[in-house]
Structure formats: C-alpha cells, structure tokens
Design a protein around this nucleic acid. Structure first.
Lengths: 263, 263
DNA sequence: GAAGCGGACG
DNA sequence: CGTCCGCTTC
C-alpha cells in the first residue's frame, strides 16, 4: 500500500502533472494540498477516469485539501470538528484538514499554515492552529490507534532538513516554537516515516520558486508522513520523488510516498 | 531609413518578441504603444544592449509610448505641451504622445484612445483628444514641414480597412465622427503612407484576441503612418509584418514599417 | 472572451 | 518565481 502527499500549488494548474504522476506511480491514496479551488470547480473527472475516488475540501484562491483513492474511503471528515469542540472560528474557516478511514486505519491530510514571518499575525495563527491540531489528533488516537498524518507541515523537523540551518531561529518553518509545536504532535505517539529509512541531510521536498532554489538544491524537508506505532512498524519505504519538480511549470513541492506492508 | 510602429500590449510581456523583431529587421526607429509600465520599470537594457537609444513616456497599467532609435534623438517631447496651451488636464494625464527630431524631420508617436463604444464617455474623450491632436500637429507643422505621425490610431480610415464594413457606423473605430476627426488631421497635409503602395482591401494590422479573429483574418488596419508632403515623396515602401502576430502570446497588433529614401 | 496589471500569499 | 483574483481594457 502506497500513500503519498503532494502540495500541488493549484490542482487546476497542475492537473497534467498530477494525472501523469498517478499513472506512473499507481499510489493507492494521494493526499493533496493547496488545491486552491472551490469544490464545485475541482476537476474530478480526470481522476475518476483514472479509477480514483475523489474527496475534496476546498475554498477559493487559498488552501484546499483533497484525498484521491483507488478504493472508496469511509468516514470522510473535513476540518477539526467534530473531534474538537470550541475551535476558534478563524481556525476552521481555512480548509486545511481532511481525513478518512482506509484499510482499517485513519489517514489525516494536513495543509499547515505557512506562518509568513516570525512575529506576524499569521505566525501566531500557525501556533494557535497547532494547539487545535494537537487536541484533534489526541482525540483521534483515543478512538483509533492506527493513524497516518501526512501533508505539508510547513516546518522542517530538524536542522538536517534545511539546506542552511544558520540563523534558522529567525526563519519561519524552523523556529524553536514551531518545532516544539511539531514535537508535541510527535509526542502523542507519531514518528517521521522518512527517518526510518534515511538519515542523510540534504533530503528536501520543497524548494522556493525564487532564486533558482531548485537548481541549486536549496530546499527544505517540510512534507512529512507521521505514523502511529502500529503503522510505523509496517512502513517499508518512504521516498521523495523529485522528478515532477523538474517539469515545466512545476509545483514548488515534490510528492512524498510512504509504503506500508499489506498486513 | 526605416521607421516602424507597433502596439505591443505590454512591453514587459512582449520583450522577447520585440527584441527578436529588432534583431531581425534592424529598423532605425521603433515607435511603441501600450507599453503599460512606469518609466522606472521600463526594460531599458535589452534595447540598449542591441544598440538602441530609449525614450519613454509611460504610466502604470495603461497606455504608455516609447521611441527606440539606433541614433540619439533630439528635442524629445512628451504629451501635447508645450505645443498646445490650455489642454484639459484629463487629456494630458494619459501617456499617449511622444515625439522627437530624427534626421531633420519630426517623428510623432501616438496611442489614440480606443473609445470603448459609441456614445460612451470614452468615445467622447477620444473625439476631444482628436481636437487637441489637431491643434498640436498644426503647431508642429508651422515650425517644421517635415513630420511623420505614426501609431495606433484606433480608427480604420476607410471601409477597405475593415474586414466587414457592414454596420460600421455603430462600431467604434469606424464611425463617421471618428473618420472625420482623422480626416481633419489628414487635411493638415498628411497622407497615409500605406496607400501610396497598396490599394487592396483586407490589409490589416490589428486582430482582436477574441473569436479566433487572427486565424479567420477578421482584422482592421488601424496602425498608420501619416506623412507630410516632403516625407511622403520620400516613402519607398510601407509594409505590415504579420509574423509576430503568429507567435505564442502575441500582441494583438502587427508592426507596420515605412521606408524612406535617405535624401 | 482574451489578456493585461497589481496585490496578496507563499 | 508563480499561484489566484478583481479589475480594466479592448
């Protein structure tokens, strides 16, 4: 079983890249972020034509997440409700969370707020959002010990996940407060699937469009698969596919795939 | 000597087309319209690198004219002032006129208002603008009998300059009032250089982006060179180059070149 | 309806 | 650098 996460930076603009990649890789579930389209305008048929079931939670212009699956998914939920009560309205407005049951476990697909710059309102929003995510995942785990949380986390977990960790404390996606928020999630009982197989630094999933960052390999590893123990046991591979990032008009993110034993 | 006029519909978007065309054609002076950029952001160096001197009169988003010349130009003037006094402020606000001395004659580069639709405020603006243009050119001719006026006139002089003249009286760019305004300019002593050499109908310089107008050759001849008698005598060719209109992401206008004897 | 710009966001 | 949108123009 292969589960992939890919921030596509507009599903409409990246339609060809995504359908081609699905054809090439045959992943079982693809978790998309930054679809940037309202549900009525999501291009469903290119994916149903390939045999995928489509579950979407989108909005105009920004954010938006989706699940594509070769088999139907059960109990699809959008946003933090009803797992978490009393979520600030502004944290639920942005469409960043979609989850569903697949093969007896729960897949949670996240598009974590970027945070803009340290100390900005958006940075505060990101940290508030993580507090709610913590409660949300805590609630999920209480009901179901098998959880896979993936997506664009907009945080590099460690210094080896950044091309240049110098001065990182001032850099959004690398500050101590963000890493602590991420660690609090991990402490619920999640482990980073990629690091089960690969300890090297310089393994990136995102490269800024600016400053020829991809050509110079100035990237960050911010697209992650966090697995609860029973799934972490079953993980047999986790890979970043840089090929789509080399195409014309690419997303700034590469897809990341985790493979689990069938058990 | 070759003088060309080209409405490029954004010099920044069309930069490659224009530099390539200059390289291919080696015109002496290129008169640009709809540069759509403030002077500080005009891409000067691509043209200076090709050996052109650059004179610009631009504004944000709309309008904007420029002169590119292989040799330095003298007495460059922008707008109607100081030739015409007491011009309504709204007629000078839009950057549509740039002029300069070249080889002993004056080149006037115009971007005539489009006029939107008959009876609209913009249509009235266009006719008012022509009244000032008339005074402006009258003043120029009094000082200097050798004048070349070119640009996007947004008027087709005759029915043979329109793909379908039926119902043209209701069509902006072809109404009687507009043609009379244009004729009043001609009556100052200008003649249409193109018609010195070519009497055929269906000779167009502009094709709407809509309705596959270019493919179906549904165009208009609205990009003109008007020459005062001494220059008209010297004209030895006037041609519309449709090649750039066939490129990817073209301007909706083709460049029009007039050639004069060196005399 | 096609295409431009500017501004927000990343 | 590249997405989206609202706006304007033609």
């Amino acid at each position: 079983m292969k589960i992939a996460t890919w921030n596509v930076n507009s599903i409409r603009t990246r339609l060809e890249h995504v359908t081609q990649w699905l054809t090439d890789t045959s992943v079982d579930v693809l978790c998309l972020q930054e679809t940037k389209v309202v549900d009525e305008s999501f291009p469903r048929s290119p994916f149903t034509d390939l045999g995928y079931h489509v579950y979407i939670y989108g909005q105009k212009s920004y954010n938006g997440v989706a699940l594509l699956s070769r088999t139907p998914l059960e109990n699809v939920s959008m946003g933090f409700a009803p797992e978490v009560a009393d979520v600030d309205a502004d944290l639920e407005e942005q469409k960043r969370v979609i989850a569903a049951d697949f093969q007896g476990y729960r897949i949670v697909n996240l598009y974590v707020p970027n945070g803009s710059s340290v100390g900005s309102d958006k940075y505060d929003y990101k940290l508030r959002w993580f507090k709610v995510l913590h409660r949300y995942l805590q609630s999920l785990l209480a009901a179901q010990p098998q959880v896979l949380v993936c997506g664009d986390f907009n945080i590099a977990p460690e210094d080896r996940d950044i091309h240049d960790p110098k001065g990182r404390e001032k850099q959004v996606m690398a500050t101590e407060a963000e890493r602590q928020a991420l660690q609090a999630i991990a402490d619920l009982g999640f482990a980073d699937a990629f690091r089960k197989f690969n300890q090297e630094d310089g393994q990136f999933s995102w490269w800024d469009y600016r400053a020829a960052a991809f050509r110079r390999d100035l990237g960050w590893r911010i697209d992650l698969h966090y697995l609860s123990p029973p799934l972490y046991e079953r993980a047999i591979a986790c890979t970043i596919d840089k090929a789509p990032r080399k195409l014309e008009k690419p997303s700034d993110h590469a897809p990341v795939t985790v493979e689990l034993t069938d058990s």
